[in-house]
Design a protein around this nucleic acid. Structure first.
Lengths: 91, 91
DNA sequence: CACCTAATTAGATTATATGTTAAATAGCAA
DNA sequence: TTGCTATTTAACATATAATCTAATTAGGTG
């Protein structure tokens, strides 16, 4: 069932932007972080919030950690929004 | 264009619940507030956050203030979520 | 006007979020 | 082991959010 943490995670513009980057590809923490004018520990905190919300999943490969979107939870969020606003799923 | 305030507004469970109540009917501040175990000023603050995000619209009728869902912004939020997750709008 | 009701605003407190630098951990490779 | 790179965790400061009680505003009605 949909986690309240997901909505909190979406409240920050950097986190929403990270999710967009992960729509189509896996990226390492460093690859993501270098796109933002923010310290690595701060970025790491954002990853952690997204992970807690299960919006992203981490996989270590050597000494990189790759993040990818959790499509299942993304879908749950969409359903949650539609439920809130009473929007019908078409098809 | 979609306001970042809308996502913040959705981060609080009480505010999401208020929006659900306003899916199908207008309700006064008092009618909404009595459903929650929270002071009226606190509820008023939540209304204010939702108003700031343009998710709800207020209309005074005599002594009562009626709130209703702003369907346009609700739709923008849904589109925003679909954009983040790269979900295609069907039809 | 005086009074009542509905709702908000003010002022304060506490909790949570966001960000930093410094230190720690994990893996790889010489 | 030593050293290097990638990333996180710790410790802390500051900002924003959430909540309360008390006071105020706005609109009815006698």
């Amino acid at each position: 069932m949909l986690n309240s943490k997901a909505f909190k995670a979406l409240a920050h513009p950097v986190r929403r932007d990270i999710l967009k980057r992960l729509r189509d590809e896996q990226l390492s923490a460093g690859e993501i972080a270098e796109a933002y004018d923010m310290s690595k520990p701060s970025m790491s905190t954002h990853f952690s919030v997204l992970k807690e919300a299960r919006l992203i999943q981490a996989e270590r490969k050597g000494n990189h950690i790759y993040y990818r979107l959790n499509v299942t939870v993304a879908d749950e969020v969409l359903s949650g929004i539609m439920d809130i606003f009473g929007i019908e799923k078409e098809k």
